[in-house]
Design a protein around this nucleic acid. Structure first.
Lengths: 106, 106
DNA sequence: TGATGATTTGGTTATATTGCCAATAATACG
DNA sequence: CGTATTATTGGCAATATAACCAAATCATCA
């Protein structure tokens, strides 16, 4: 693959990789409604707080979320709401896959 | 995390994971224009044909592409064109990240 | 059938990701 | 200050991904 092309797709892949984890998708979904502290997200995800913190760091590095410290807490918010539009298409993909699987059985 | 919720996000993550690789993004981009044989895609990606075949298998399992054998060749096509809309948003994310990095320097 | 071309599959190694625990910041407050 | 609360970082073990080569499959045609 051409090196310039590779750089372009590598950068894009980095963003998608950041989204490609169940816990991180849940986090993004929650942030769609409103900002949340790390502790709140930890309760929702149901993992160790250090694990959630690392997930948030990945989302932040990818440019998907913002963090803002207020007192002892750090609040995360969605930076680029357009990612929410992914979910609809992903559901379409899943549905299409399911349909074809059903078609095979019949 | 609740088990039902987990299943939902796991399925979604599987689709995004399938997209989260530079070579697979290149493939999807190429398939946006027209169907391609494995050999054609291999030339574009610039990896071993077995590697490309495995990438295609991942995209297929995720429900993102269709395959159709015609003679000795197998042609892959995009199954759910809505994924192309991801690229625009991903570029937005990358641009926003770049902007904030520039802002930090100044 | 045997040979050839196109693709997939199996196996192996290298690298990356994930999740937890422990230790370290950062903040608030008595 | 000393302590409690919230979050991040370092380190490690387990698991998952990725790439290549070699071998197997599938289709065509002499």
């Amino acid at each position: 693959m051409d090196v310039g092309l590779q750089a372009k797709y590598q950068a894009r892949a980095q963003v998608l990789k950041a989204l490609a984890h169940p816990s991180r998708l849940l986090i993004v979904d929650q942030l769609a409604a409103r900002e949340h502290s790390v502790a709140e997200l930890t309760a929702l995800v149901g993992a160790d707080i250090s694990t959630v913190s690392k997930h948030l760091s990945i989302l932040k590095t990818a440019g998907l979320v913002n963090d803002q410290r207020r007192g002892k807490q750090v609040f995360y918010s969605l930076r680029t709401p357009c990612v929410l539009s992914f979910f609809g298409c992903v559901e379409t993909v899943l549905q299409a896959k399911l349909d074809s699987q059903i078609r095979l059985v019949r």
